[in-house]
């Protein structure tokens, strides 16, 4: 019997929420554990082995400190397939909002001894530093998608995770469009699907947790929202959330921020 594939789970600057999604897979966790050796999983056990090679590595969190950058490079060197999971790892996360301001001021305001706090000038997603084989979006990630990602990667299939708008999922679910029927602003048309149109299902516009989809025409959407009465300040807030540091959303929020 060949060695079983090794699954590594690592975290950088993040809240652990995405890793918890893995634990949240309760029913399926046994099947995963039967199929792979879970080698490094700080959230689940203290018995970790950060050395050796990983067939599939899931990395949560963004890069905020020089130490994290070093760690990330080491992880990459040991990984066959490296997947960035969650908004922090794929777009910087909420902590990347400090990039829009002078972060030294934050550090001074928050910490008693700011000299101990060593930070990089900007919080960045993983792909800014190392090659990433797949980005699993979301804040937090969706457990169904995580399961599909693991199952697919283990057999060498492309995960059935399409880079398409939230509208596609919303319409497949038979959800009534909140923009058209209720006049609510919604980032669904420019946001990567994956949540199953969760907010529209609760009659709320999409907040863009999964970050921009390919060809996100944020400008057309923002122009339309503005024509419908959404203020520039509100547009900035909408595009500057969990994935505000992604290129498309950042450019859009900057367009309205003066």
């Amino acid at each position: 019997m060949a060695a079983r594939p090794r699954l590594g789970v690592f975290k950088l600057a993040s809240c652990d929420g995405c890793q918890l999604t893995l634990l949240d897979l309760e029913d399926e966790l046994l099947a995963i554990a039967a199929a792979v050796d879970i080698v490094h999983f700080p959230e689940a056990s203290s018995d970790m082995d950060p050395h050796g090679r990983f067939d599939l590595t899931l990395v949560e969190g963004s890069v905020s400190t020089p130490a994290q950058l070093d760690e990330l490079r080491a992880i990459r060197a040991q990984s066959r397939t490296l997947v960035a999971i969650g908004a922090c790892a794929t777009a910087g996360g909420v902590q990347a909002l400090r990039n829009f301001a002078d972060h030294r001021e934050y550090v001074r305001a928050v910490y008693a001894t700011p000299a101990y706090i060593e930070t990089l000038a900007q919080v960045t997603p993983i792909a800014a530093h190392v090659r990433v084989d797949f980005e699993l979006r979301g804040c937090p990630i969706d457990k169904g998608q995580l399961l599909e990602l693991i199952s697919a990667t283990l057999v060498g299939r492309r995960p059935d995770i399409a880079d398409e708008s939230v509208c596609m999922a919303c319409k497949r679910a038979g959800q009534v469009c909140v923009t058209v029927a209720h006049g609510q602003p919604c980032l669904g048309p420019v946001t990567h699907a994956g949540c199953g149109a969760l907010c529209p299902r609760f009659s709320r516009g999409c907040f863009g947790c999964y970050g921009p989809r390919e060809r996100a025409n944020t400008e057309a959407l923002a122009d339309h929202m503005q024509a419908e009465g959404v203020s520039a300040a509100s547009l900035v807030r909408r595009f500057r959330l969990f994935t505000g540091w992604s290129e498309a959303f950042r450019a859009e929020s900057e367009r309205h921020d003066d």
Binding site: S165, K171, G188, P189, L221
Partner: peptide, 10 residues
């Protein structure tokens, strides 16, 4: 103007 959202097709 088009967002390429796909709503029209669905």
């Amino acid at each position: 103007r088009c967002l390429s959202c796909g709503s029209c097709t669905l």
